[in-house]
Amino acid sequence: MKKTELLGEDIEYTVRRSSKATIPRVDVSMDGVRAVIPEGSDKDPEGLLQEKAIQVIKSKKKFDRYREEIPKRKFQEGEFFPYLGEEHNVAVSSEHSDRKVEGEKLILPADEVKDTSIKRELEKLYREKAREIIEEILERYEDLRIEYKRIKLKNQKTRWASCSSRQNLNFNWRIAMAPKDIIEYVVVHELVHLEESNHSKRFWTKVSSILPDYKERAKWLKDHSPKLVFSEEDYTSSSW
């Protein structure tokens, strides 16, 4: 572990030499700060951090805040997980053969839990519900006449959704943890991206015409993302 001072703050960081990296970069994550230097490069890691000081400090503070806000959940019966913005209690039942949401409970079938785990079955439930909700929202926006090919639920680490050049819509299955109006914003955002690939003025004008309050929804998602965490594997990183 190395140390340096950035904008008056003492920062600990590590250095990794990478054969895959094409340019020097700085990764900031829940695990800390890391300078990634391509093999054969004579770039000074500390000098790189100094160049990226503002971004590094900003992201480090963000992840420090995330670390404080992230719920310490356990994958066991009786634990609480968010679903559509509300806390739900995990229950394992031998009376149900299907994963389901019932009242304020996330019900998992005992036989499936025995064969896999509560964590795995809970993820399956979120995936199933996320698809149902997303498909329902897409049906409501059929009048936009924006064509897409497939809906994919992915284990994305750094984003809530994306779209591909093949006109596929990709969604992070964890979005089922967010309120429905937030999921709607994410769906609309990606639909519009199928017509406008970047975040141009025209893109945001289109989003605004569909969801006039999109800024409030986007802010909610940004502010509450630390609470929409399934497990430690969800921790994301930022790079420059």
Rank of each mutant, 00 (worst) to 15 (best):
L48K: 06
R99L: 13
I107L: 09
F75K: 13
L122D: 01
K152E: 10
Y83D: 12
K119G: 09
A176M: 05
E104N: 14
E102G: 07
K119N: 09
E104Y: 08
Q50L: 15
E87Y: 01
I107S: 07
L144K: 05
R67K: 15
R131C: 07
V56L: 07
K154P: 13
I137M: 06
A53T: 02
N155Y: 00
R131F: 01
E51I: 09
D111F: 04
F81Q: 01
K43C: 09
I134W: 02
S117E: 04
A176V: 09
C163I: 02
D111H: 05
L49R: 05
L138H: 02
F81N: 00
E132R: 14
I70S: 11
A176S: 14
H88Q: 08
I175K: 09
E128N: 12
L153T: 04
Q156K: 10
R99A: 13
F63T: 04
P82Y: 08
K61P: 03
S59F: 04
I70F: 03
L122T: 04
E102F: 00
N168Y: 02
K154T: 07
R99Q: 10
N155D: 13
K72N: 09
T158G: 03
E112Q: 14
L144Y: 04
S164Y: 07
K43S: 10
S164K: 06
W173C: 00
I151P: 14
K157T: 08
G47F: 01
K149H: 07
D64G: 11
K157E: 02
L138N: 12
R145C: 07
G78S: 11
L138S: 08
K105Y: 06
R166L: 13
K62Q: 15
D64P: 15
K152L: 04
I107G: 12
G85I: 12
P71R: 02
V90L: 07
E128I: 03
E136F: 05
T158C: 08
L138Q: 06
